[in-house]
């Protein structure tokens, strides 16, 4: 199995990118990016993120920092969570504006 060979290939490697420091850095970059998306929500979202996430071009720098400090799978995971949350929020808002229908 290729994956079993992977472990034996690097028997004593420590993946520092999931340890506390890197994790915190990733969370910080992630929050900065989502804050940017929130603040720039009046701009037209043109850039494509991971799982159908669209963000304005103004946040490109934050996005780059975010992608650099997190693993690609983590970025995907967080983007998915964000989209889900937004969808739920939209549905809730929709219900309110419709009022007594």
């Amino acid at each position: 199995m290729a994956s079993e060979a992977y472990a034996s290939r690097n028997p004593d490697q420590v993946h520092t990118d999931v340890l506390l420091q890197a994790r915190q850095a990733c969370y910080k970059a992630r929050d900065a990016f989502y804050d940017c998306v929130k603040n720039q929500s009046d701009k037209k979202p043109t850039e494509l993120g991971c799982v159908g996430l669209l963000y304005p071009a103004e946040c490109k720098k934050a996005r780059l920092a975010y992608e650099n400090s997190c693993r690609p799978s983590w970025v995907k995971h967080f983007d998915r969570l964000y989209c889900k949350e937004k969808r739920v929020q939209r549905l809730l808002d929709d219900k309110e504006t419709r009022g007594g229908v």
Partner: peptide, 16 residues
């Protein structure tokens, strides 16, 4: 995830 979580890595992770 034993493929990536080797004893050394696991120790470093849990120590924190």
């Amino acid at each position: 995830d034993p493929q990536r979580d080797t004893p050394t890595h696991l120790r470093a992770y849990l120590k924190e």
